[in-house]
């Protein structure tokens, strides 16, 4: 797919040196730290930073401190993990499919994880995250395989437009089946409709600790494979001549997406647009080296997710808008604006 140059090539004015990139990363980490603090402090009740500090070091069991410890901190930690997961999985998918407009939502992967989890909860009656987590993984693997195969139907292979259309079609099917299952199990329907769009609310710390090892594993795997992905981005033939093992790279990348997207979707529900937007912005700043793209994505995606969550908590006080809804409302206009700006010639 050919995009107008302005959208893809790094700005030559920003001399992309290692040092600058390292500095940029530190800045982003700083922003992340600030956003985390805000996430702990802001909400239906704004809590002063002093109280937050006390909640950690001088715990005296006041209401506000309890909120910090039992609600806000778990929520923030979960937001961090989910942000990393959705953002990085999007970046990996974009690298592997050479499609700058892909993320786990668009390609129907979230729908796959969702369907399998609905099956686990609705039909098998599982209630423990650590049990239906594995269904999330299976669902991701299933959807990924299918969307890739479907997108390859025909002679031209898996071009971006075919993959996108395959994702739309597959997402529609899987959502339809998921809907059908839920209709047949009204009690599960009731439970699941509260989970159906991504949200960080009402998850205890245990959720975050359960998915932590998988997110970490997925992240490490993605970073390991980043270098080979640089070669793969040049095209299969060139990559082979550079010594990259394409099949192995693809499989490892897919496993990492499976771990990241599967765990996150099982824990918080499907959240879109993070994986779509952040790698784009990062590419624009950092250039095309996948290693730096992945690292920056890991740091910046939680920033967007936590900000969206904060906005959701503030905008309709005392109620709350789920983070999945906020990202859609923010991400969609940005996506539309972006696609109008760019001169896209698909294929």
């Amino acid at each position: 797919m050919v995009l107008a140059r302005s959208a893809v090539q790094p700005r030559p004015a920003v001399a992309v040196t290692r040092r600058r990139q390292g500095l940029g990363l530190v800045v982003c980490l700083g922003v992340l730290a600030v956003v985390c603090l805000l996430s702990i402090a802001l909400g239906t009740r704004n809590i002063s930073l002093g109280t937050v500090w006390d909640a950690f070091w001088h715990y005296t069991d006041t209401d506000d401190q309890a909120i910090v410890r039992d609600l806000r901190v778990p929520r923030t930690v979960l937001g961090l993990l989910a942000g990393v997961a959705f953002g990085l999985s999007g970046a990996v998918i974009q690298a592997v499919t050479r499609n700058p407009l892909a993320d786990t939502q668009i390609l129907g992967v979230n729908s796959g994880a969702g369907l399998f989890v609905v099956f686990a909860v609705g039909v098998l009656g599982l209630t423990d995250l650590s049990q239906y987590l594995w269904f999330g993984f299976a669902g991701v693997a299933f959807a990924l395989t299918l969307v890739y195969l479907l997108g390859s139907v025909g002679r031209a292979g898996a071009t971006p437009i075919r993959l996108t259309l395959a994702g739309v079609a597959l997402g529609a099917v899987l959502d339809g089946v998921s809907s059908g299952i839920r209709l047949v199990r009204p009690r599960a329907f009731d439970y699941l409709r509260f989970w159906d769009v991504g949200t960080l609310a009402g998850r205890p710390m245990q959720v975050a600790t359960t998915i932590l090892p998988f997110i970490v594993a997925g992240t490490l795997l993605a970073l390991l494979v980043a270098r080979s992905l640089n070669a793969v981005a040049l095209g299969d033939d060139l990559a082979r001549s550079l010594g990259a093992s394409i099949a192995r790279t693809r499989v490892l990348a897919m496993v990492s997406v499976m771990l990241l997207a599967g765990a996150a979707t099982a824990a918080v529900g499907p959240i879109g647009f993070i994986g779509l937007m952040i790698p784009h912005v990062v590419r624009w700043i950092v250039g095309t080296d996948q290693r730096w793209i992945f690292v920056y994505t890991v740091v910046c995606s939680p920033i967007l997710l936590l900000l969206a969550d904060i906005v959701g908590r503030l905008v309709v006080r005392p109620g709350e808008l789920r983070v999945g809804i906020v990202t859609a409302f923010v991400g969609a206009p940005v996506l539309i604006w972006w696609i109008r700006r760019t001169r896209v010639s698909a294929q």
């Binding site: 668009i106 259309l165 739309v168 991400g331 969609a332 996506l335 539309i336 696609i339």
Partner: peptide, 14 residues
């Protein structure tokens, strides 16, 4: 074509 599809996806998401 492609722009229509992407806009469709975005609007569907909202």
């Amino acid at each position: 074509g492609f722009r229509l599809i992407i806009v469709g996806i975005a609007v569907s998401a909202v």
